[in-house]
Amino acid sequence: MNHAKQLADLIRAADRVLVFTGAGISTESGIPDFRSPGGVWSKMQPIYFQDFVASREKRREAWTRVFNKSAGWVGASPNDGHRAIAKLVEMGKVTAVVTQNVDNLHQDGGVPDDKVIEIHGNASYAKCLDCGMRHELEELRAPWEADEEIVCVNCAGLLKTATISFGQAMPEDKMERATAEAEASDLCIVLGSSLVVYPAAGIPVMAVRAGSRLVIVNREPTDLDPYAHLVLNTEIGPLMNEVMEALETA
């Protein structure tokens, strides 16, 4: 059977679809992943959360990466995969999108913000480490250019991009919500994740344990492939275009 039709049939039969996305969906928009050759961490060392907090030099380096766009995490456009997910949300099939990505492309592609659970945060804005107030990046460019400490206008606490850094605690509220969505789903579709980074990769595991069918679409095999109802090692955007065509013509 045609793979796109197989996936379309699974979506059509499902009541609550959870989509779980990793770097592989955004590489199709030109955003580098983290761990592969040529990825972000092959070009620069991650700055650990404890070092960011303790060292002005490390904070300066982190903000320089932000404003020089060294990591390349923001500024790209959503692709067909992102737009297909947004359409499935609009159709009422996908109840939540749990993402490991920090690029804001799901929202840019049309998924309402309240449907996106960003378990690794978001690189498109900053948050205060003390009071949690959101700050837009362009507002912080002037103090960075002046080599000033970048602090919160509300409480003078340290600001950091709203990503979850190495050594930083995972957001409990988002993990709890992702867990609840996984356990309530009857179909979990993994798009572009190697499923090796935990605790994030545990979300599809929870879905399977709760009785959900699992679909994995990734360029390379994953450790969870044996537990999946369908595994497709292919490009996400072209596949999802075919899936949407199959759904719309049925």
Rank of each mutant, 00 (worst) to 15 (best):
M206G: 05
V66E: 10
V217W: 00
A250H: 12
A246G: 11
A76N: 08
A126Q: 08
T27H: 08
G24T: 04
G92M: 14
T161Y: 05
R59K: 12
V151H: 05
P221F: 00
A54H: 11
W63N: 09
P221V: 00
M133W: 03
E136K: 10
A250W: 14
V153L: 14
G202H: 01
E61R: 14
M44A: 09
E248Q: 15
T21P: 12
Q50L: 06
A84K: 10
D130P: 02
K160T: 15
K5S: 09
G121T: 14
R141A: 11
V153G: 09
Y227L: 15
A250D: 14
L195C: 01
S185Y: 03
K5Q: 12
P238G: 06
R83G: 06
W73N: 12
G202Y: 01
L159M: 07
A14N: 04
A182K: 05
I150C: 03
L239P: 10
R35K: 05
C152Y: 10
A126D: 12
V19K: 04
P112V: 06
I150V: 05
G75H: 05
S185E: 02
V215P: 00
A146E: 15
N218M: 00
G121A: 12
T95G: 13
F49E: 07
W41D: 09
F34H: 08
N218E: 00
S42H: 11
L191Y: 01
G109Q: 05
V153Q: 12
V190M: 00
A14F: 05
R209D: 03
D225R: 00
H229A: 01
E183A: 09
M170C: 04
G30R: 10
A76Y: 02
N154M: 11
T99M: 11
F49S: 04
D80C: 01
E148L: 12
E183V: 09
V243S: 08
A54P: 08
K160H: 14
S194C: 04
C128K: 04
P37A: 03
E148S: 11
I31L: 12
A8W: 02
V217F: 00
G72W: 02
A162N: 15
E90L: 11
V94P: 09
D223Y: 07
G39N: 10
N241P: 08
T234I: 06
T95D: 12
V215W: 00
D33W: 01
G121F: 11
F20T: 06
C188I: 01
K58F: 10
P112S: 08
V17T: 05
K93E: 13
L129H: 07
Q100V: 08
K93R: 15
A23K: 00
T249C: 06
